[in-house]
Amino acid sequence: MAEIIYNISAIIALAGMIIALYRMVKGPSIADKAIALDVMTIISISLIVYIAAISQKIIYTDVALVYALISFIGVIAIARYLERGL
């Protein structure tokens, strides 16, 4: 029972990721695309931890942690680039 609910919530989060992907492809300005990328990153962090839980490997949560760090630095880099160039 509980496993089924976990799987359903992963599917719902994945549907959100597809919607954000649509906005990222379509988005009129570059800031829209960056925001959609940010949301996709956050959803994928959640899904990485989900995969770590169902495959019973603690080491995968480190991947999520490093991914969160890199995505934060990436978004800051995009913002700085938009503001005054690299």
Binding site: I5, S9, I12, A15, G16, I19, A20, Y22, V39, I42
Partner: peptide, 16 residues
């Protein structure tokens, strides 16, 4: 987790 995933979905819907 189910409630959290619904919030994630609504965030993406807000983006759209």
């Amino acid at each position: 987790t189910l409630i959290g995933s619904i919030f994630l979905f609504l965030g993406a819907l807000g983006i759209l």
